Simulated scan of single mutants.
Amino acid sequence: MRLERLSWTEKLSGPKARRPIPILSPLFRDAVIQASLNPRVRKLSFVRTLCFRGVEVPADLLLLHGEDRVAMELLDARPLRGLDEIGMLLLALERSGSRLRQMSARDVEQEPLLSNCRLVWNSRDAEVHRADRHAIFAALGQGATKLGELRRSCGLGCETVHALMCADLIGADLSLPLNDDLAIVRIRRPAVPRAASPPR
């Protein structure tokens, strides 16, 4: 994922986000980065509004697609809502098959997750040579490998490993200490079928 400036706001786009995600606040940026580096999250999307019974409901939610669909709302960045709007939002989420998860600043700022994700994210634009990428994939072919062992066997630095995490090609539980004992896994996402061409 790469940080880019579109119009008046910052947005994030990358392997998990087909469309740029607006950054509502610095804390929201950290939450998006953490979701981007979470191996259990397959896809990210941002929803400005939801529809319920023909009525548009303001949302401003980050959708995390994994084993289920979670609509994440950061409490410091959420719009002000009346009781009727809250009820409509919950009904619209239920109909869409998503569950609401509200997060506070304390949730996002948990350590070492916060510092680990920021550190890894700093390498998102690092160049990774094809031979180095293949070497890492080969080392992970038999399953999870400790970070220290992976670096020694491939002769690579942390920046290369971090860049592949940002590319959603390998992953780790970054809520754990980022040291040589951290388990690294290969990420294989199922191919998304291409839409059939309309008949001519």
Rank of each mutant, 00 (worst) to 15 (best):
A138C: 08
K146I: 04
E149R: 13
R151H: 06
R151Y: 03
C158T: 10
C166D: 02
D168A: 11
A144Y: 03
A139L: 11
L164W: 01
L150R: 03
L156Y: 04
L156I: 13
G141T: 13
L156H: 03
A138D: 13
A138P: 01
A167W: 01
T145S: 09
G141C: 12
C154K: 02
M165L: 08
L140T: 06
G148L: 13
C158M: 11
M165G: 01
T160C: 09
G141V: 11
S153T: 13
G155M: 08
A163W: 00
A138K: 13
L169F: 02
T145V: 15
C154P: 03
A167S: 07
M165S: 03
R151E: 12
R152D: 13
L150N: 03
L169C: 04
A144K: 12
L150E: 04
A144S: 13
R152C: 06
A163K: 00
C166P: 01
T145M: 14
T160V: 15
T160Y: 05
R151G: 04
G157T: 06
C158I: 10
R151K: 15
R152T: 14
M165C: 10
E159K: 06
A138Q: 14
L156C: 05
G155N: 09
G143F: 07
A139P: 06
H162G: 00
A144I: 04
C166I: 02
V161I: 15
L150W: 05
G148F: 12
G148D: 14
G141Y: 10
E159N: 10
G155L: 09
L156D: 03
D168L: 01
A163L: 02
T145L: 14
A163D: 02
L147N: 06
T160W: 02
S153P: 00
A139T: 12
L169V: 04
C154V: 11
T145I: 12
L147M: 15
A167E: 10
D168S: 11
D168Q: 07
C154T: 15
L140H: 06
L169K: 09
G148K: 14
Q142A: 15
G143E: 07
C166W: 00
G148H: 12
S153A: 10
K146T: 12
E149K: 13
A138N: 12
A144C: 06
L140W: 06
G141M: 11
L140V: 09
H162T: 00
L169G: 00
L164A: 03
K146G: 15
L169M: 10
G143K: 11
G143T: 09
E159S: 11
L164N: 00
A144P: 07
C158V: 09
R151A: 14
L147P: 04
V161K: 00
